[in-house]
Computed example of a mutant assay.
Amino acid sequence: MALTREEREQFLSEPHIAALAVDAGEEGRAPLTVPIWYQYAPGGDVWVMTGRDSRKATLIGRAGRFSLMVDRITPTVRYVSVEGPVIETVPATREQLVELAARYLPAEKIETYVDFAWKAQGENVVIRMRPQHWLSSDLGEL
């Protein structure tokens, strides 16, 4: 059964690990699909953070759009997939890295992770996507 707008937006706002997919832009290659942390609030735009010179950033810049898919298997099998155009790519801030880490890590781990990631991962960008197409379903208990 498809989710209502409110249900799908609420589900996407929860801290799931997303599968990001973007056109690989090469004949004979499937889309690049990788796990990624993301941020979303109902009614807003989705954003991801990645290395400025990463393959993800390059392909997203070329394609101008990407998809995210999140799912869970308990207590019911549920998924939401969202796709849309990139509306902004900007240098990432340390505050955004803290915000993203706080979504996924226990409070006592955030500072250590952010210190490490900020120094070790090189320059990052935040890529914002405007949700345009949604697919969602709750398959119930299996």
Rank of each mutant, 00 (worst) to 15 (best):
A18K: 09
A18S: 02
A18Y: 05
A19P: 07
A19C: 14
A19T: 14
A19V: 15
L20D: 04
D23A: 09
A24F: 12
A24R: 13
A24T: 10
G25R: 03
E27S: 14
R29Y: 15
A30V: 15
L32P: 07
T33Y: 01
T33A: 13
V34Q: 04
V34D: 09
V34A: 02
P35C: 00
W37Y: 06
W37R: 08
Y40Q: 04
A41M: 00
G43P: 05
G44L: 01
G44E: 14
V46R: 11
W47L: 06
V48I: 13
G51D: 01
R52N: 02
R52S: 05
D53G: 06
S54F: 01
R55P: 06
K56I: 11
K56N: 08
L59H: 03
I60G: 06
R62S: 14
R62L: 10
A63Q: 01
R65V: 09
F66V: 01
F66M: 01
S67R: 01
L68T: 07
M69F: 02
M69K: 01
D71K: 09
R72Y: 04
I73A: 15
I73D: 14
T74A: 12
P75L: 03
P75M: 00
P75V: 01
V77G: 05
S81T: 11
S81Q: 12
S81R: 13
V82S: 08
G84W: 12
G84Y: 09
P85Q: 07
I87M: 00
E88M: 07
V90R: 14
P91T: 11
T93E: 10
T93Q: 11
R94A: 08
R94T: 08
L97K: 05
V98A: 05
E99A: 15
E99M: 13
R103A: 02
R103C: 00
Y104W: 08
P106T: 00
P106L: 02
A107H: 02
K109C: 01
I110W: 04
E111G: 13
E111W: 08
T112S: 13
T112E: 14
Y113P: 00
V114C: 10
F116R: 11
K119W: 03
K119A: 15
A120D: 12
G122R: 02
E123D: 15
N124L: 15
N124P: 05
V125Y: 05
I127Y: 06
M129H: 09
Q132E: 15
H133P: 00
H133I: 11
W134Q: 01
W134V: 02
L135D: 05
S136P: 13
S137E: 09
S137N: 13
S137H: 11
S137W: 09
